[in-house]
Design a protein around this nucleic acid. Structure first.
Length: 278
DNA sequence: ACGAGATCCTGTCAGC
DNA sequence: TGCTGACAGGATCTCG
C-alpha cells in the first residue's frame, strides 16, 4: 500500500515522535516480520537511541546510536502492502492488537508498533555499513524528487519495455507504486502500455513533471488512504480524493467523460483513459 | 532484456 | 445469514 508519499509522511511523523528516544526493548510477536534471527535483531536495536529517521524509496529507516563511535546501526522497515508503523504515547493502546508484529518499547514508556495484516512487511537491522551493502538497497534507483527531467529521461533512454512496468521497477526510479504510476501517466497523457522507445524526450520530460507534481501533492495531502493506510499518528491521508484514474475504472474520465478502462499490465491492475492517454 | 504468471499472506467486499 | 470467489498498494522468482 504505502508508496513514496505515504512512507515519507510516516517517516516525518516518526522523526517528530522518536528522535532522541531510547529503545529499551524489542518484543517480537511474529517472527515472520523479521528478516533475520530475533536475537541478532534485538542485539542491533535494543539499548540504542534514535539518531535520525529518514526514508529511501519505500523504506522507513531509523539510524540508531549507542554513544560509542562507529557503532551506528540502522533499522529498516518495508511496509509492503499493509504494514503500519505507529508511535504510541505511554499507556496508549495498540490500534489493533491482532495485527501487532513487533513492539519497540521506549525508555520514555511510549512504544513504536509495527502492525501488518497481510504479513508481507519486514523489519531488518544492520550493523555499521550493512545497509549500503544490502543488495536491495544498493540496487535502488534514484529518488524521483531528486531527479531533474534530463536525468529522468536519461534513466529511461535505451530501455525497450513499456513505460508503466519501468516506473514500477525500483531499480529504475525508487518509490513509485501502482497508484502513483497510474496517476502520473494519466496526467502526462501517456498510455501505460506505451513503449519507452516510442515516447521521445518531450513526453518523458512531461511525465517527469507530472510524476513530481503528483508525489508532492500526495505528500502535502498526508498520503492516500485506501483500506489500511494510516500515518504514524494513526491519521488518514486525503490524496485518495484527488485520484483521477486509480480505482475509477468504469467511471467517466474527468477530462473527456469517456469510461475509464481497466486492464492488467505485468500483473498489476491498470486504469487509464483510451482517449486522453496515447 | 522483457514480460507473464505464480507466490508469499489475510481481510474485505460483491454476488448468489 | 452464510458461503465462494475475486481482489488488494509490493517484491521476487521461474520460465518462455
Amino acid at each position: 500500500m504505502p508508496e513514496l508519499p505515504e512512507v515519507e509522511v510516516i517517516s516525518q511523523g516518526l522523526a517528530q515522535a522518536l528522535t532522541g528516544q531510547r529503545i529499551r526493548a524489542v518484543r517480537v510477536l511474529d517472527r515472520m516480520a523479521l528478516e533475520q534471527p530475533v536475537a541478532a535483531f534485538q542485539r542491533l536495536v535494543q539499548g540504542r537511541r534514535v539518531a535520525r529517521v529518514w526514508r529511501r524509496a519505500k523504506l522507513v529507516l531509523l539510524d540508531l546510536a549507542d554513544g560509542r563511535p562507529d557503532s551506528r546501526t540502522t533499522l529498516a522497515v518495508h511496509l509492503r502492502m499493509t504494514g503500519r508503523l505507529v508511535a504510541l504515547a505511554k499507556a496508549e493502546p495498540l490500534p489493533d492488537e491482532r495485527f501487532a508484529r513487533v513492539l519497540f518499547e521506549l525508555a520514555s514508556g511510549g512504544r513504536l508498533a509495527f502492525l501488518d495484516v497481510r504479513r508481507f512487511g519486514r523489519c531488518l537491522a544492520f550493523g555499521p555499513g550493512g545497509l549500503a551493502a544490502w543488495p536491495f538497497f544498493a540496487a535502488l534507483g534514484p529518488e524521483p524528487l531528486d531527479l531533474d527531467a534530463a536525468a529522468f529521461t536519461a534513466r529511461l533512454a535505451g530501455r525497450r519495455g513499456r513505460i508503466k512496468p519501468l516506473l514500477l521497477d525500483q531499480t529504475v526510479v525508487a518509490g513509485i507504486g501502482n497508484i502513483y504510476a497510474d496517476e502520473s501517466l494519466f496526467r502526462a497523457g501517456i498510455r501505460p502500455q506505451a513503449r519507452v522507445a516510442d515516447l521521445g524526450p518531450e513526453r518523458l520530460a512531461r511525465l517527469h513533471a507530472c510524476l513530481v507534481a503528483v508525489l508532492a501533492e500526495a505528500i502535502a495531502a498526508n498520503g492516500s488512504s485506501i483500506r489500511d493506510y494510516r500515518d504514524s499518528g494513526g491519521r488518514v491521508g486525503s490524496f485518495q480524493n484527488s485520484f483521477r484514474v486509480y480505482g475509477r475504472a468504469g467511471l467517466p474520465c474527468l477530462q473527456c467523460g469517456k469510461k475509464l478502462k481497466k486492464s492488467t499490465l505485468s500483473g498489476r491492475t491498470t486504469t487509464f483513459c483510451t482517449t486522453c492517454q496515447a
